[in-house]
Design a protein around this nucleic acid. Structure first.
Length: 166
DNA sequence: GCCAACGTTGGC
DNA sequence: GCCAACGTTGGC
């Protein structure tokens, strides 16, 4: 089986990695995605067991905060059906859902956060989507090289996701 | 289907 | 706070 890797963006004032760590079973739904390109990735590509970099945007400094993994693959985003929800979309109906969510489970916080400015200094990361001009996607694919480089920078073992939690 | 106007994102 | 880049909207 080949695991893929992703970067998920969140504004920590909205939902932080610490909140995920503190959630029951360290799990949370990843909902509210309302961009078609990100939706397509969530729905069609993000798979159970995939690795996730949890990135904090719109904070100082913007940074990678932690590692998570996908613990449930795509399902219709329930917040799109809820008139009380911030991202309610009346055009998404249960018979034909427009928006999708996954669930993620925290693996560990980075031993030290990795600011975006530091990522920009690493030659192996120059082609990371995050670092491209104008890139705004909230769900971004990472190559195996990107993933390993970032684990290494953070001081985490390459086989992090293969090691069952103790 | 074009494209101008507008709203949002998000680093700096 | 600024503003570049991008996505969406809607008149035509």
């Amino acid at each position: 089986m080949s695991r893929r890797h992703w970067l998920f963006k969140s504004e920590p004032s909205c939902f932080s990695f610490a909140q995920l760590m503190a959630a029951p079973d360290r799990r949370s739904i990843w909902d509210g995605v309302r961009n078609y390109q990100a939706r397509n990735l969530l729905r069609d590509q993000v798979a159970l067991g995939d690795g996730v970099l949890f990135y904090h945007s719109s904070t100082r400094p913007p940074h990678v905060a932690g590692i998570a993994k996908v613990c449930r693959a795509a399902f219709p985003d329930p917040t799109a059906f809820d008139p009380q929800a911030e991202h309610f979309d009346p055009k998404s109906i249960p018979h034909n859902p427009r928006w999708f969510a996954v669930e993620v489970e925290a693996v560990c916080a980075l031993p030290r956060i990795l600011p975006i400015a530091e990522l920009r200094t690493r030659p192996l990361l120059f082609d990371m989507p995050l670092l491209q001009k104008g890139q705004r996607l909230s769900i971004q694919p990472l190559s195996e090289l990107h993933w390993l480089e970032i684990l290494g920078l953070a001081g985490l073992p390459e086989n992090l996701l293969d090691t069952p939690p103790s």
